[in-house]
Design a protein around this nucleic acid. Sequence first.
DNA 1: TTGAAAGCGCTAACAG
DNA 2: CTGTTAGCGCTTTCAA
Lengths: 342, 342
Amino acid sequence: MKKNKKITIKDLSKYLSLSTSTVSRAFSENQNINPNTKKRILEAAEKFDYKPNRLALNLKSGQTKNIGVIVPEMVTPYAISVIRGIENIVYPKDYQIIIKVSDEDKDKERDNILFLENLKVDALIVSTTNEAENIDLYQKLISNGTPIIFYDRIPNIKLEVPKVIVKDAIYSSLMVEHLVSIGKKKIVHILGPDTIRNAKEREIGYDRILKKHQLYDKKLKVKAKQLSIFEGKKAIEELIDKNIQFDAIFAFSDILAIGAMNFLLEKGYKIPKDVAVASFSGTILSSMLHPQLTTVESPLEEMGEKAALLTLEKIENPTIENKTIVLDSNLAYRSSTNHIEE
Amino acid sequence: MKKNKKITIKDLSKYLSLSTSTVSRAFSENQNINPNTKKRILEAAEKFDYKPNRLALNLKSGQTKNIGVIVPEMVTPYAISVIRGIENIVYPKDYQIIIKVSDEDKDKERDNILFLENLKVDALIVSTTNEAENIDLYQKLISNGTPIIFYDRIPNIKLEVPKVIVKDAIYSSLMVEHLVSIGKKKIVHILGPDTIRNAKEREIGYDRILKKHQLYDKKLKVKAKQLSIFEGKKAIEELIDKNIQFDAIFAFSDILAIGAMNFLLEKGYKIPKDVAVASFSGTILSSMLHPQLTTVESPLEEMGEKAALLTLEKIENPTIENKTIVLDSNLAYRSSTNHIEE
DNA sequence: TTGAAAGCGCTAACAG
DNA sequence: CTGTTAGCGCTTTCAA
């Protein structure tokens, strides 16, 4: 079966005995066109259910109206929330998004960039897998005129780009302060991989509070090599093996916290009585567990919206200054740290 | 900064003193072109980093090379696995996918269809929110010549379309049989909403086994109105309120099982000793919990691949017969049903 | 205010 | 085997 014959400007012009250019003008703003003519055209368009052909517009304008979005992972619903925010902004403006997932793999990320470049996307919104990788490529795209906007996990290098981030160090501090406030003294920090800029920020926040309360002990810091359940589990297993005592855990991310918590649960620990657990990230995942996880909830959807706004700005005006937007988060206290005596 | 001047076939033809058509021929298969000429052209293309302009190709062919994918939800990593499968197949064929999420809302699903139609996607791959909704629209698109391929949650009506499904009833039976085999006698079924075809299938599987073992009791079936953690919790809460005894739960989906299990855990039940819990779906979610969830693991990635294959077939040959592919699943036995005496 | 004509980059008859 | 030409649907000078 053939596609329905789509009606074109030509058909309309023929029907109305007008030129195609006049018809065309009826669909663009502020053109020199007689209001009556415009009205007639619009009515006819309505009647025949005319829709401008996006493909032709694209070729004409050289724009694909596509924005590439590269996210580091999709195992957690983190990215999907950010994407929702992006959609909120770009769909009304007639842009599409093409989503690519890097699966925490810098090489895959590189492929994704190349793929999207090849697609001639009008801009790129990205959260990196590794703060120091693929910078050359990003740099190249940018100098070729493709706007790139980073969010959350941004490159460490001074790249001249717009970005949206959260206050990692501050909220990390606040969360650790919470752990101290509920009486915890030996607070473990499961650090994120040091290929992620945020990991360092969050560590700074953690260090600050523990030192302030003279609870700091280097032995309480364990590094996760990757963001996986297994690494979270491994980190804690290591501590236990080394016989290092602790009564709380502050993990770099949900997924790490989950690995740690499940391991403790398996071993019969009571949470939060024996060990309180808190993390950073704020996806719905944290409330799908038992006990529910106390966490720093980043404003993911807003992050996407801001990033999209910056993107659109940059597309419309490539010479605009590169803003950095810093977002506040929310502290969600849940059962994993709120011990209720039984 | 302006985009780099992209070089075109025209530039190449000028440089090589050839016509644009000859140059064009060098990039398409099986054309009448002198191998040497072709070689020269390819070399020049390489040298100048020539890339065919997708936008022009699209206009020319009337194809967007975009495939729309509509998924019912993205709270669980279900869809993302299917999408991965789709990507495996379509990316090598130079297609892009545009993902739209319906959030279990039939109206949103409708918007998504309209949106994608407007985008002139070459085909649609969809998993519905509701077996009986938006059929008119799907029907319309199909008769307008847009291939639509359904997977997993398909419409109930006899729509003449290719589809990919799993053996819901059979695996449901197998899972319930497992529950019986570990000694459970009072097996609750949390049914999915009856707007989902699979819910009925899985119920059939459940009924069959319970009747076979003369364990069937209508009171043990509770219906979830939606697929949410809360509904899972509510279903079980209801049973307990009504003082209905049970020692196992078979839930329509992961998310329902999670709600149920967390509620029981909160109330101090031991899982699986007091109550064993099993579900159907097979995302990574089930192994992120404690205890890990026994579940029917559907071959999600494969499902995506098959759906994509059917899609490509249909795009290339619209008159091809509409196949239905039925996939096998895997039973993953985990701690939520394997009680180990302590 | 409207129309004619050119052209975005590419492909595909058709002719040579 | 190669070139000429027209045209996909639309916008945009330029002229009228």
